[in-house]
């Protein structure tokens, strides 16, 4: 029953958010602020994780392929497709659920506790719309861009792990990166990153919006935002994989 209660309340909140804005300029300003917060504020952490993600993938495939008949340039090919299809969208969004999602839940929850949301409601502002929609729009624009950066940086990470160490010639790694390229995989990456961006933002905003009580409850809401977002990201990852690959 509890899950249906939350699902109903979540959908109602989203429904009341998607209405005509009171003032488009204010919403646009808020969207830009969120894009800056989510995007610029997360580039370094995303790039840092992606570089190691690519490096580790390259090294482990190099280890697994050693002594086998499979050509070594496949390392570049595997790093590229792994980054595009799976690790860049999924791991980046799992990390962003922790960084951005908890921040959103805490920000909105704090506004609820300090009566900022009530103050806006009394002014006549549709808070479900003003506090959530700019975040959603910003996230679905910026997070796919971050994922794109992550995918590119992961390939650079793979390069740095195997080429300067002398395990693979740079020509071979680059050959692998360009081999068997399927543009549809990039489409899968963007479907995943957009879906994950929507989920982590909507869930985090929902958790923050309905905070009651004090700092303990705010902490719980922030934790719930991360945990639930992560579960939903992994579940939808599987679902998208099934739907878009046809297996």
């Amino acid at each position: 029953m509890n899950i249906f209660y939350h699902l109903g309340r979540f959908l109602t909140l989203l429904g009341s958010g998607f209405t005509r804005p009171e003032n488009l300029r204010m919403y646009w300003k808020e969207t830009l602020r969120q894009m800056d917060d989510i995007g610029v504020g997360s580039v370094i952490i995303v790039a840092l994780i992606a570089i190691f993600m690519g490096a580790v993938a390259a090294l482990q495939f190099a280890y697994q392929l050693s002594g086998q008949l499979i050509p070594l340039y496949y390392i570049g090919y595997i790093v590229r497709d792994l980054a595009i299809i799976e690790s860049a969208p999924t791991i980046t969004c799992l990390v962003l659920a922790g960084k951005v999602g908890s921040n959103m839940a805490a920000e909105i929850g704090g506004m609820r506790q300090k009566e900022h949301i009530d103050a806006m409601e009394i002014m006549g502002v549709n808070t479900a719309s003003y506090l959530i929609i700019p975040k959603l729009i910003a996230a679905v624009i910026v997070i796919p861009l971050l994922v794109t950066i992550a995918a590119c940086v992961a390939m650079v990470g793979g390069y740095l792990a195997v080429v300067p160490t002398g395990y693979l010639a740079d020509v071979d790694y680059l050959r692998g990166l360009t081999a068997f390229f399927v543009p549809y995989n990039v489409f899968i990456m963007y479907v995943k990153s957009t879906t994950f961006a929507f989920l982590l933002t909507a869930v985090s905003c929902y958790q923050g919006y309905y905070v009651t009580g004090g700092s303990v409850e705010l902490g719980k809401a922030s934790t719930n935002a991360v945990v639930i977002s992560n579960i939903l990201i992994l579940f939808s990852d599987y679902l998208i994989a099934v739907l878009l690959t046809g297996y």
């Binding site: 209405t19 300090k114 409601e121 009394i122 006549g124 502002v125 549709n126």
Partner: peptide
């Protein structure tokens, strides 16, 4: 809710903790 928002344009409120946006 929509009609209430129109009425609220005529309402001001001072909160106990002032509720100013930090």
């Amino acid at each position: 809710k929509k009609e209430l928002r129109q009425i609220r344009m005529q309402v001001g409120m001072l909160f106990q903790g002032s509720a100013l946006f930090d």
